[in-house]
């Protein structure tokens, strides 16, 4: 698998997939997509990276430990649910905020943050599984 062509092209593929995954995640509320799919795409990207170079290098490229990313995702998703408490509403009531930036209106909302949390959990968990299996015997996962 470690052909020169693959190793050369892999970063390109990975970068494209990561950008695409974020796009899929963000548009999920109105078009097909969402945190689950985005996270899976991003995790596949990391798996490709791990295969092209090595699991250790993929980890280094990620900077954060993938499981920590997943943990942060769970935390983020849980906290977005708590935001509504300040609004005197039940847990996980959604709150919307429309930002006027010149001509465009950017809708921000707690479900969006929640979806990003889902994205991070799926991404972190599955890439940590993939990298764990890709790493070799001797190497500490």
């Amino acid at each position: 698998m470690n052909t020169v062509i693959f190793r050369t092209i892999a970063p390109l593929i990975v970068a494209t997939m990561l950008v695409f995954s974020i796009y899929v995640c963000l548009r999920g509320h109105n078009e097909p997509g969402g945190g689950f799919i985005g996270g899976l795409i991003a995790a596949s990207a990391i798996a490709v990276l791990g295969m092209a170079s090595s699991a250790a290098q993929a980890r280094k490229a990620l900077y954060f430990d993938p499981l920590s990313i997943a943990g942060f995702g769970v935390l983020l998703a849980g906290l977005t649910g708590l935001v509504s408490v300040f609004n005197n509403s039940p847990f996980m009531t959604s709150i919307w905020l429309y930002l006027e930036l010149g001509e465009a209106t950017v809708p921000l909302s707690t479900p969006l943050l929640f979806d990003i949390g889902v994205y991070l959990v799926v991404f972190g968990t599955i890439s940590s599984i993939a990298l764990g299996l890709e790493s070799n015997e001797g190497e500490e996962p």
Partner: peptide
């Protein structure tokens, strides 16, 4: 109510957000 056009995603992150969590 939920300001989302993709109904499946709205169910996942809003209506049934607690389940998804």
């Amino acid at each position: 109510i939920a300001h989302g056009h993709n109904i499946v995603n709205v169910i996942l992150v809003d209506y049934r957000g607690f389940d998804t969590l």
